[in-house]
């Protein structure tokens, strides 16, 4: 009994002693932080994704308040975030360009041709080291590494392919990093108008005959899209068609191009199937 009392008193006393010392030092050494940093931090998304190049949202907030960074430097935050920050600091915000991730593979689970049986780790990264089971060495494995890393729940696996919710996607680029096959790219859009867009759902730069053998929907490099849409929105990068997102704007021509594409490689993304205004900074 006695020993318990002594222990309690000893530990309690020591605790008190150090608590008092800490309290005093805290008062003496208190660092005054600019209250605006806290406010800016609240306005930022606060997920510490690192897309802006700073270690944390707090670092960016500090830089914004100091004037070393602009309110729109958060690539993840939309125009509302930028405006809020600009209001806090009393400066005008510039027009915001939204970045959105686009998937460049259209081979769903059913379409994908397999060359082997794969029983290894069920992540894209592991499958990529070994080679995976699918025939196309540029295509999507479908294990969903991108879904796991997405901080905003914007990616969903549908029939073995990642589908990106254009409204939720912030273009932070985490999925681009995660994808071992570099299927996902980040493109510039104007957020107000972005409801849907199109993509070349193939990333295979091989010749048409080779692609045809392993994939029904792969780009065979026929360059019909380039010819049908004369404004330069589509262009050929070797044997692979690509979209110049700064020029694609004519929705009628899109429909034509999509219809004429022999391999049906060009896909519409997003909920509304009609326009699709894509503007460039």
């Amino acid at each position: 009994m006695n020993i318990i009392v002594i222990s309690t008193i000893a530990m309690g006393g020591l605790g008190m002693f150090f608590a008092i010392i800490l309290a005093i030092t805290n008062k003496k050494l208190y660092v005054k932080e600019d209250p605006r940093i806290e406010k800016v931090l609240e306005a930022l998304p606060g997920v510490n994704c690192g897309a802006c190049g700073n270690a944390s949202c707090h670092d960016l907030a500090q830089k914004i308040v100091k004037g070393e960074a602009e309110p729109h430097d958060c690539p993840v935050g939309d125009s509302e975030v930028t405006e809020n920050i600009a209001n806090i600091l009393g400066i005008e915000s510039k027009e915001v360009i939204t970045k959105v991730a686009i998937v460049h593979c259209g081979a769903t689970e059913k379409i994908r041709k397999k060359r082997a049986v794969y029983i290894g780790g069920q992540t894209c990264r592991v499958a990529d080291i070994i080679g995976g089971e699918i025939s196309c060495s540029y295509g999507c494995f479908g294990y969903g590494d991108c879904v796991t890393v997405c901080l905003f729940d914007a990616i969903e696996m549908v029939e073995g392919l990642p589908v990106i919710d254009l409204m939720k996607c912030t273009g932070c680029g985490q999925c681009v990093e995660a994808c071992p096959r570099n299927i996902i790219s980040i493109e510039d859009f104007s957020k107000e108008k972005l409801t849907s867009t199109i993509s070349i759902a193939c990333n295979n730069p091989d010749k048409g005959a080779v692609v045809r053998k392993i994939c029904e929907v792969g780009c065979i490099g026929c360059s019909l899209c380039e010819k049908n849409c004369e404004d330069g929105s589509f262009y050929m990068d070797g044997m692979l068609a690509r979209i110049d997102y700064s020029k694609v704007y004519n929705s009628e021509k899109w429909d034509l191009v999509i219809e004429k594409c022999p391999a049906k490689t060009i896909k519409k993304l997003g909920k509304e199937s009609k326009c699709v205004c894509v503007t460039h900074p």
Partner: peptide, 13 residues
């Protein structure tokens, strides 16, 4: 006070 078993706790503190 003959409570040496408190050494870990008090040292951590």
């Amino acid at each position: 006070f003959n409570v040496p078993f408190l050494e870990y706790v008090s040292f951590i503190l």
